[in-house]
Design a protein around this nucleic acid. Structure first.
Lengths: 116, 116
DNA sequence: TCGATGCATCGACGTATGTCAATCCGTCTG
DNA sequence: CAGACGGATTGACATACGTCGATGCATCGA
């Protein structure tokens, strides 16, 4: 299905933009923010993010994540893909491992959107 | 179905607690955070929050919200209920109107959970 | 007291989501 | 080159979610 192209969470400036609690938000900003929040709306994905944050070098491969969350490897891969699509995580292939790192700017911008 | 009782988003201290990006998160904290983020994971609800924030007195009744979001009244009521259940909004009946206000502390705590 | 008004609840419907087992695809190693 | 290993994709399935129209329930005004 035509999975709509993800708008960037941050605009070019980086410092950003739209606040949920700052005033009226147009439909497009609301859509973009909701897409990011939806990625955070599953306990498994929240745990995956925190596991990556707690890993040495703040990065982790899928093999490091499967056991802690207690789900199958395909399911973990699936969640990681969603996090990448949401722009909250980046994937880097290194040898036969895929390493994931948090996108701190995106997470911080999301956090800021909830503060007046 | 046994909709699990919503854990409070903030613990008693108010200043709070769990950070998504600060390190390993136990399953219960992840669950609680995800439940709140899921409430933000729909563009309509994000718009509703921003509309309330932009309303005079930072409060609004359903009748003020239906037109701007362009959905039916029952649907808006449904979304408002989810926001209340998530602890992001409070409802106060005043005469025949139901007024909704943001729970700034909950939103701020959620925002902090995304910042290192 | 009666009708109108503002909202919540209900029932239904189509779609999205989370999960798994099975399979496929690169990459490294013997 | 042949396995083994890490991970992504696929297909299937049950459940959750967003939406609506119809209806129920208070509360206010005449």
């Amino acid at each position: 299905m035509a999975r709509a192209r993800t708008l960037p969470l941050l605009d070019a400036a980086g410092s950003c933009c739209s606040s949920v609690v700052g005033g009226a938000l147009d439909a497009e900003d609301a859509e973009r923010l909701a897409r990011a929040f939806k990625a955070l709306g599953d306990p498994t994905r929240v745990r995956l993010l925190s596991l990556i944050a707690a890993s040495p070098g703040r990065e982790a491969c899928v093999c490091d994540l499967v056991d802690p969350v207690g789900l199958s490897q395909p399911t973990v891969s699936h969640h990681m893909k969603l996090l990448v699509d949401a722009g909250l995580v980046v994937r880097e292939q290194r040898g036969r491992w895929a390493f994931y790192r948090l996108v701190d700017d995106a997470l911080a911008a999301l956090g800021r959107s909830l503060r007046p």
